[in-house]
Design a protein around this nucleic acid. Structure first.
Lengths: 178, 178
DNA sequence: TTGCTCCTCACGTCACGTGAGGTGGC
DNA sequence: TTGCTCCTCACGTCACGTGAGGTGGC
Protein backbone atom coordinates (compact mmCIF):
# COMPACT_ATOMS: atom_id res chain seq x y z
CA UNK A 1 0.00 0.00 0.00
CA UNK A 2 2.05 2.84 -1.39
CA UNK A 3 1.47 6.35 -0.18
CA UNK A 4 0.40 8.81 -2.87
CA UNK A 5 -0.87 12.35 -2.86
CA UNK A 6 -4.22 11.78 -4.53
CA UNK A 7 -6.70 9.37 -2.94
CA UNK A 8 -10.48 8.88 -3.24
CA UNK A 9 -12.79 10.15 -0.52
CA UNK A 10 -13.25 6.73 1.00
CA UNK A 11 -9.58 6.60 1.85
CA UNK A 12 -9.18 10.21 2.95
CA UNK A 13 -9.29 9.12 6.58
CA UNK A 14 -6.20 7.03 6.07
CA UNK A 15 -3.93 9.98 5.36
CA UNK A 16 -5.30 11.80 8.39
CA UNK A 17 -4.48 8.81 10.55
CA UNK A 18 -0.99 8.56 9.12
CA UNK A 19 -0.45 12.28 9.57
CA UNK A 20 -1.46 12.14 13.23
CA UNK A 21 -5.03 13.43 13.00
CA UNK A 22 -6.65 16.34 14.74
CA UNK A 23 -9.43 14.58 16.66
CA UNK A 24 -12.21 17.12 16.70
CA UNK A 25 -15.22 14.84 16.30
CA UNK A 26 -17.32 13.92 19.32
CA UNK A 27 -19.01 10.53 19.39
CA UNK A 28 -22.34 12.07 18.39
CA UNK A 29 -20.73 13.60 15.31
CA UNK A 30 -19.35 10.24 14.25
CA UNK A 31 -22.75 8.66 14.94
CA UNK A 32 -24.47 11.21 12.72
CA UNK A 33 -21.87 10.86 9.96
CA UNK A 34 -22.14 7.07 9.89
CA UNK A 35 -25.77 6.44 10.73
CA UNK A 36 -24.84 4.41 13.82
CA UNK A 37 -26.00 4.98 17.38
CA UNK A 38 -23.65 6.24 20.05
CA UNK A 39 -24.18 2.91 21.79
CA UNK A 40 -22.96 0.96 18.77
CA UNK A 41 -19.79 3.04 18.51
CA UNK A 42 -19.02 2.44 22.18
CA UNK A 43 -19.52 -1.28 21.58
CA UNK A 44 -17.02 -1.19 18.70
CA UNK A 45 -14.54 0.43 21.07
CA UNK A 46 -15.10 -2.28 23.68
CA UNK A 47 -14.26 -4.85 20.99
CA UNK A 48 -11.14 -2.94 19.97
CA UNK A 49 -12.55 -2.09 16.54
CA UNK A 50 -12.73 1.70 16.88
CA UNK A 51 -10.43 3.60 19.20
CA UNK A 52 -10.90 7.34 19.85
CA UNK A 53 -7.82 9.37 19.01
CA UNK A 54 -8.04 11.04 22.44
CA UNK A 55 -10.18 11.80 25.47
CA UNK A 56 -10.90 15.24 26.91
CA UNK A 57 -10.25 15.97 30.58
CA UNK A 58 -13.91 15.31 31.27
CA UNK A 59 -13.73 11.88 29.62
CA UNK A 60 -15.33 12.80 26.28
CA UNK A 61 -14.18 10.61 23.38
CA UNK A 62 -12.60 12.61 20.55
CA UNK A 63 -12.23 11.09 17.07
CA UNK A 64 -10.50 12.16 13.89
CA UNK A 65 -12.08 11.66 10.49
CA UNK A 66 -10.56 8.24 9.94
CA UNK A 67 -13.17 6.98 12.39
CA UNK A 68 -15.87 7.58 9.76
CA UNK A 69 -13.93 5.50 7.22
CA UNK A 70 -13.43 2.79 9.81
CA UNK A 71 -17.11 2.60 10.72
CA UNK A 72 -18.09 2.45 7.05
CA UNK A 73 -15.65 -0.44 6.63
CA UNK A 74 -17.16 -2.24 9.63
CA UNK A 75 -20.63 -1.66 8.19
CA UNK A 76 -19.79 -3.16 4.81
CA UNK A 77 -18.36 -6.26 6.42
CA UNK A 78 -21.46 -6.55 8.61
CA UNK A 79 -23.68 -6.26 5.53
CA UNK A 80 -21.67 -9.10 4.02
CA UNK A 81 -22.53 -11.21 7.07
CA UNK A 82 -19.30 -10.98 9.07
CA UNK A 83 -19.85 -10.90 12.84
CA UNK A 84 -18.03 -8.28 14.90
CA UNK A 85 -15.77 -11.04 16.21
CA UNK A 86 -14.85 -12.06 12.67
CA UNK A 87 -14.20 -8.40 11.86
CA UNK A 88 -11.84 -8.29 14.84
CA UNK A 89 -9.79 -11.03 13.20
CA UNK A 90 -9.60 -9.09 9.95
CA UNK A 91 -8.75 -5.88 11.77
CA UNK A 92 -5.88 -7.53 13.64
CA UNK A 93 -4.24 -8.66 10.41
CA UNK A 94 -1.56 -5.99 10.52
CA UNK A 95 -0.92 -6.23 14.24
CA UNK A 96 1.24 -9.22 15.08
CA UNK A 97 4.46 -10.57 13.68
CA UNK A 98 2.66 -13.02 11.39
CA UNK A 99 4.29 -13.00 7.92
CA UNK A 100 2.44 -10.81 5.44
CA UNK A 101 1.89 -13.69 3.06
CA UNK A 102 0.06 -15.78 5.66
CA UNK A 103 -1.92 -12.83 6.99
CA UNK A 104 -3.10 -11.94 3.51
CA UNK A 105 -3.91 -15.59 2.79
CA UNK A 106 -6.23 -15.57 5.82
CA UNK A 107 -8.00 -12.47 4.54
CA UNK A 108 -8.27 -13.97 1.06
CA UNK A 109 -9.77 -17.18 2.48
CA UNK A 110 -12.31 -15.25 4.56
CA UNK A 111 -13.31 -13.13 1.56
CA UNK A 112 -13.51 -16.13 -0.75
CA UNK A 113 -15.78 -18.04 1.62
CA UNK A 114 -17.95 -14.99 2.10
CA UNK A 115 -18.22 -14.40 -1.63
CA UNK A 116 -19.70 -17.88 -2.06
CA UNK A 117 -22.15 -17.27 0.80
CA UNK A 118 -23.21 -13.93 -0.62
CA UNK A 119 -23.91 -15.49 -4.02
CA UNK A 120 -26.03 -18.20 -2.42
CA UNK A 121 -27.91 -15.65 -0.39
CA UNK A 122 -28.60 -13.50 -3.45
CA UNK A 123 -30.01 -16.51 -5.27
CA UNK A 124 -32.24 -17.40 -2.32
CA UNK A 125 -33.42 -13.81 -1.95
CA UNK A 126 -34.32 -13.60 -5.61
CA UNK A 127 -36.35 -16.80 -5.39
CA UNK A 128 -38.16 -15.42 -2.34
CA UNK A 129 -38.74 -12.14 -4.15
CA UNK A 130 -40.53 -14.12 -6.82
CA UNK A 131 -42.65 -15.88 -4.22
CA UNK A 132 -43.53 -12.55 -2.62
CA UNK A 133 -44.60 -11.15 -5.97
CA UNK A 134 -46.78 -14.18 -6.71
CA UNK A 135 -48.27 -14.02 -3.21
CA UNK A 136 -49.18 -10.37 -3.68
CA UNK A 137 -50.86 -11.12 -7.01
CA UNK A 138 -52.83 -13.92 -5.37
CA UNK A 139 -53.89 -11.65 -2.50
CA UNK A 140 -55.21 -9.06 -4.94
CA UNK A 141 -57.91 -11.61 -5.71
CA UNK A 142 -58.89 -11.80 -2.04
CA UNK A 143 -60.54 -8.38 -2.17
CA UNK A 144 -63.96 -10.01 -2.27
CA UNK A 145 -63.57 -11.54 1.20
CA UNK A 146 -65.58 -8.88 2.97
CA UNK A 147 -68.39 -11.03 4.23
CA UNK A 148 -66.79 -12.10 7.53
CA UNK A 149 -63.72 -13.26 9.42
CA UNK A 150 -60.99 -15.15 7.59
CA UNK A 151 -61.46 -18.46 9.34
CA UNK A 152 -65.01 -18.82 7.98
CA UNK A 153 -64.83 -16.81 4.76
CA UNK A 154 -61.54 -18.22 3.45
CA UNK A 155 -62.63 -21.81 3.96
CA UNK A 156 -65.50 -21.19 1.58
CA UNK A 157 -63.45 -19.20 -0.92
CA UNK A 158 -65.08 -19.15 -4.37
CA UNK A 159 -62.50 -16.92 -6.04
CA UNK A 160 -61.58 -18.33 -9.47
CA UNK A 161 -58.07 -19.78 -9.40
CA UNK A 162 -57.88 -19.78 -5.61
CA UNK A 163 -57.91 -23.51 -4.98
CA UNK A 164 -55.24 -24.96 -2.77
CA UNK A 165 -53.10 -26.13 -5.64
CA UNK A 166 -52.64 -22.52 -6.71
CA UNK A 167 -52.09 -21.00 -3.28
CA UNK A 168 -48.52 -19.67 -2.87
CA UNK A 169 -46.87 -21.29 0.12
CA UNK A 170 -46.28 -17.89 1.75
CA UNK A 171 -50.05 -17.51 1.89
CA UNK A 172 -51.03 -21.15 2.39
CA UNK A 173 -48.61 -21.55 5.29
CA UNK A 174 -50.68 -19.14 7.33
CA UNK A 175 -53.12 -21.98 7.80
CA UNK A 176 -50.79 -24.94 8.36
CA UNK A 177 -49.80 -26.27 11.74
CA UNK A 178 -51.88 -24.38 14.29
CA UNK B 1 -58.90 -21.38 -0.49
CA UNK B 2 -61.00 -24.09 -2.05
CA UNK B 3 -60.38 -27.68 -1.12
CA UNK B 4 -59.35 -29.91 -4.01
CA UNK B 5 -58.08 -33.43 -4.34
CA UNK B 6 -54.75 -32.72 -6.01
CA UNK B 7 -52.26 -30.47 -4.26
CA UNK B 8 -48.48 -29.91 -4.57
CA UNK B 9 -46.15 -31.42 -1.98
CA UNK B 10 -45.64 -28.12 -0.19
CA UNK B 11 -49.31 -28.04 0.73
CA UNK B 12 -49.69 -31.72 1.55
CA UNK B 13 -49.53 -30.92 5.27
CA UNK B 14 -52.65 -28.79 4.97
CA UNK B 15 -54.86 -31.70 4.04
CA UNK B 16 -53.46 -33.74 6.90
CA UNK B 17 -54.30 -30.96 9.33
CA UNK B 18 -57.82 -30.63 7.97
CA UNK B 19 -58.31 -34.38 8.14
CA UNK B 20 -57.24 -34.54 11.78
CA UNK B 21 -53.67 -35.77 11.41
CA UNK B 22 -51.96 -38.78 12.86
CA UNK B 23 -49.17 -37.13 14.87
CA UNK B 24 -46.38 -39.67 14.67
CA UNK B 25 -43.39 -37.35 14.43
CA UNK B 26 -41.25 -36.65 17.50
CA UNK B 27 -39.57 -33.28 17.80
CA UNK B 28 -36.26 -34.72 16.65
CA UNK B 29 -37.90 -36.00 13.47
CA UNK B 30 -39.31 -32.58 12.69
CA UNK B 31 -35.92 -31.03 13.45
CA UNK B 32 -34.21 -33.40 11.02
CA UNK B 33 -36.85 -32.85 8.34
CA UNK B 34 -36.59 -29.06 8.56
CA UNK B 35 -32.94 -28.48 9.41
CA UNK B 36 -33.87 -26.73 12.65
CA UNK B 37 -32.66 -27.55 16.14
CA UNK B 38 -34.96 -29.02 18.74
CA UNK B 39 -34.42 -25.86 20.74
CA UNK B 40 -35.68 -23.68 17.90
CA UNK B 41 -38.85 -25.75 17.51
CA UNK B 42 -39.57 -25.44 21.22
CA UNK B 43 -39.10 -21.68 20.92
CA UNK B 44 -41.63 -21.56 18.07
CA UNK B 45 -44.07 -23.36 20.32
CA UNK B 46 -43.50 -20.88 23.14
CA UNK B 47 -44.37 -18.10 20.68
CA UNK B 48 -47.51 -19.94 19.54
CA UNK B 49 -46.13 -20.50 16.05
CA UNK B 50 -45.93 -24.29 16.07
CA UNK B 51 -48.18 -26.39 18.27
CA UNK B 52 -47.67 -30.15 18.62
CA UNK B 53 -50.76 -32.14 17.66
CA UNK B 54 -50.50 -34.07 20.93
CA UNK B 55 -48.32 -35.09 23.89
CA UNK B 56 -47.58 -38.61 25.04
CA UNK B 57 -48.20 -39.63 28.63
CA UNK B 58 -44.52 -39.00 29.33
CA UNK B 59 -44.73 -35.45 27.97
CA UNK B 60 -43.17 -36.10 24.56
CA UNK B 61 -44.37 -33.69 21.85
CA UNK B 62 -45.96 -35.45 18.87
CA UNK B 63 -46.39 -33.67 15.53
CA UNK B 64 -48.15 -34.49 12.30
CA UNK B 65 -46.63 -33.73 8.93
CA UNK B 66 -48.17 -30.28 8.67
CA UNK B 67 -45.52 -29.20 11.19
CA UNK B 68 -42.87 -29.58 8.48
CA UNK B 69 -44.85 -27.32 6.15
CA UNK B 70 -45.32 -24.82 8.94
CA UNK B 71 -41.64 -24.68 9.81
CA UNK B 72 -40.71 -24.25 6.15
CA UNK B 73 -43.16 -21.33 6.00
CA UNK B 74 -41.63 -19.77 9.11
CA UNK B 75 -38.18 -20.22 7.58
CA UNK B 76 -39.08 -18.47 4.34
CA UNK B 77 -40.49 -15.51 6.21
CA UNK B 78 -37.37 -15.38 8.37
CA UNK B 79 -35.19 -15.40 5.25
CA UNK B 80 -37.23 -12.48 3.99
CA UNK B 81 -36.34 -10.61 7.19
CA UNK B 82 -39.54 -11.02 9.21
CA UNK B 83 -38.94 -11.40 12.96
CA UNK B 84 -40.71 -14.17 14.83
CA UNK B 85 -42.95 -11.54 16.39
CA UNK B 86 -43.92 -10.24 12.96
CA UNK B 87 -44.58 -13.82 11.87
CA UNK B 88 -46.90 -14.19 14.87
CA UNK B 89 -48.98 -11.33 13.49
CA UNK B 90 -49.21 -13.01 10.09
CA UNK B 91 -50.02 -16.37 11.67
CA UNK B 92 -52.86 -14.88 13.70
CA UNK B 93 -54.57 -13.52 10.59
CA UNK B 94 -57.25 -16.18 10.53
CA UNK B 95 -57.79 -16.27 14.27
CA UNK B 96 -59.95 -13.35 15.39
CA UNK B 97 -63.21 -11.94 14.15
CA UNK B 98 -61.49 -9.30 12.03
CA UNK B 99 -63.17 -9.07 8.60
CA UNK B 100 -61.32 -11.04 5.92
CA UNK B 101 -60.85 -7.98 3.78
CA UNK B 102 -58.99 -6.09 6.51
CA UNK B 103 -56.94 -9.11 7.56
CA UNK B 104 -55.82 -9.70 4.00
CA UNK B 105 -55.06 -6.00 3.56
CA UNK B 106 -52.69 -6.24 6.54
CA UNK B 107 -50.92 -9.23 4.99
CA UNK B 108 -50.69 -7.44 1.64
CA UNK B 109 -49.20 -4.36 3.29
CA UNK B 110 -46.62 -6.42 5.16
CA UNK B 111 -45.66 -8.29 1.98
CA UNK B 112 -45.52 -5.12 -0.08
CA UNK B 113 -43.20 -3.40 2.40
CA UNK B 114 -41.02 -6.47 2.60
CA UNK B 115 -40.79 -6.75 -1.16
CA UNK B 116 -39.33 -3.25 -1.33
CA UNK B 117 -36.84 -4.07 1.43
CA UNK B 118 -35.79 -7.29 -0.27
CA UNK B 119 -35.15 -5.47 -3.53
CA UNK B 120 -33.00 -2.88 -1.76
CA UNK B 121 -31.08 -5.59 0.03
CA UNK B 122 -30.45 -7.49 -3.19
CA UNK B 123 -29.07 -4.33 -4.79
CA UNK B 124 -26.78 -3.69 -1.81
CA UNK B 125 -25.59 -7.28 -1.74
CA UNK B 126 -24.75 -7.20 -5.43
CA UNK B 127 -22.71 -4.04 -4.97
CA UNK B 128 -20.86 -5.64 -2.08
CA UNK B 129 -20.31 -8.78 -4.14
CA UNK B 130 -18.54 -6.61 -6.70
CA UNK B 131 -16.37 -5.08 -3.99
CA UNK B 132 -15.49 -8.52 -2.67
CA UNK B 133 -14.47 -9.65 -6.14
CA UNK B 134 -12.30 -6.58 -6.68
CA UNK B 135 -10.75 -7.02 -3.23
CA UNK B 136 -9.86 -10.63 -4.00
CA UNK B 137 -8.24 -9.63 -7.28
CA UNK B 138 -6.23 -6.98 -5.45
CA UNK B 139 -5.13 -9.47 -2.80
CA UNK B 140 -3.87 -11.87 -5.46
CA UNK B 141 -1.17 -9.28 -6.07
CA UNK B 142 -0.12 -9.40 -2.41
CA UNK B 143 1.50 -12.81 -2.83
CA UNK B 144 4.91 -11.18 -2.90
CA UNK B 145 4.59 -9.94 0.71
CA UNK B 146 6.62 -12.75 2.20
CA UNK B 147 9.47 -10.75 3.59
CA UNK B 148 7.94 -9.93 7.00
CA UNK B 149 4.91 -8.90 9.04
CA UNK B 150 2.16 -6.85 7.43
CA UNK B 151 2.71 -3.69 9.45
CA UNK B 152 6.22 -3.26 8.05
CA UNK B 153 5.96 -4.98 4.68
CA UNK B 154 2.66 -3.45 3.55
CA UNK B 155 3.78 0.06 4.32
CA UNK B 156 6.61 -0.36 1.84
CA UNK B 157 4.48 -2.14 -0.78
CA UNK B 158 6.05 -1.90 -4.24
CA UNK B 159 3.44 -3.98 -6.05
CA UNK B 160 2.47 -2.28 -9.32
CA UNK B 161 -1.04 -0.82 -9.10
CA UNK B 162 -1.15 -1.11 -5.31
CA UNK B 163 -1.08 2.54 -4.36
CA UNK B 164 -3.72 3.82 -1.98
CA UNK B 165 -5.89 5.23 -4.73
CA UNK B 166 -6.39 1.70 -6.09
CA UNK B 167 -6.89 -0.08 -2.79
CA UNK B 168 -10.46 -1.41 -2.45
CA UNK B 169 -12.07 -0.03 0.69
CA UNK B 170 -12.65 -3.54 2.06
CA UNK B 171 -8.87 -3.95 2.11
CA UNK B 172 -7.86 -0.38 2.88
CA UNK B 173 -10.24 -0.17 5.84
CA UNK B 174 -8.15 -2.74 7.65
CA UNK B 175 -5.69 0.05 8.31
CA UNK B 176 -8.01 2.95 9.15
CA UNK B 177 -8.95 4.01 12.64
CA UNK B 178 -6.85 1.91 14.98
C1' DT C 1 -30.58 -52.99 31.21
C1' DT C 2 -28.28 -50.13 27.77
C1' DG C 3 -28.50 -46.19 24.72
C1' DC C 4 -30.74 -42.76 22.60
C1' DT C 5 -34.12 -39.24 22.73
C1' DC C 6 -36.87 -36.59 25.15
C1' DC C 7 -38.20 -33.29 29.20
C1' DT C 8 -37.73 -28.63 31.92
C1' DC C 9 -35.16 -24.98 33.84
C1' DA C 10 -31.80 -21.57 33.28
C1' DC C 11 -27.78 -19.13 31.99
C1' DG C 12 -24.86 -17.61 27.77
C1' DT C 13 -24.31 -15.11 23.21
C1' DC C 14 -24.59 -11.47 19.73
C1' DA C 15 -25.40 -6.65 18.51
C1' DC C 16 -27.15 -3.65 20.11
C1' DG C 17 -31.70 -0.67 22.72
C1' DT C 18 -33.03 1.69 26.70
C1' DG C 19 -33.30 3.78 30.78
C1' DA C 20 -30.96 5.54 35.52
C1' DG C 21 -28.28 8.79 37.60
C1' DG C 22 -24.79 12.00 37.03
C1' DT C 23 -21.48 15.43 34.74
C1' DG C 24 -18.97 18.21 30.77
C1' DG C 25 -18.92 22.14 27.49
C1' DC C 26 -20.48 25.96 24.70
C1' DT D 1 -27.75 29.20 34.37
C1' DT D 2 -30.11 26.58 30.76
C1' DG D 3 -29.95 22.89 27.43
C1' DC D 4 -27.74 19.63 25.02
C1' DT D 5 -24.41 16.10 24.85
C1' DC D 6 -21.61 13.25 26.99
C1' DC D 7 -20.24 9.64 30.77
C1' DT D 8 -20.70 4.78 33.12
C1' DC D 9 -23.25 1.02 34.79
C1' DA D 10 -26.64 -2.33 34.02
C1' DC D 11 -30.70 -4.65 32.58
C1' DG D 12 -33.70 -5.85 28.28
C1' DT D 13 -34.32 -7.97 23.56
C1' DC D 14 -34.06 -11.31 19.79
C1' DA D 15 -33.27 -16.02 18.19
C1' DC D 16 -31.50 -19.16 19.54
C1' DG D 17 -26.93 -22.32 21.83
C1' DT D 18 -25.55 -24.97 25.58
C1' DG D 19 -25.17 -27.37 29.50
C1' DA D 20 -27.46 -29.50 34.12
C1' DG D 21 -30.07 -32.92 35.97
C1' DG D 22 -33.58 -36.07 35.20
C1' DT D 23 -36.89 -39.35 32.67
C1' DG D 24 -39.42 -41.82 28.53
C1' DG D 25 -39.52 -45.51 24.96
C1' DC D 26 -37.99 -49.12 21.91
Amino acid sequence: MKRVDKAPDLLAGLRVAVAGGDARLKIGDVAKATGRTVRALRLYEELGLLLPAARTGGGFRMYDESAVTRVAWIGKLQDLGFTLNAIQDLALVGGGSEPGEEAMARVRAAFRDKLAEVREQTTRLQALEGELTRSLQYLEGCAGCRRGPVHTVCRACQEPGHDEANTPSLVGGIRAGV
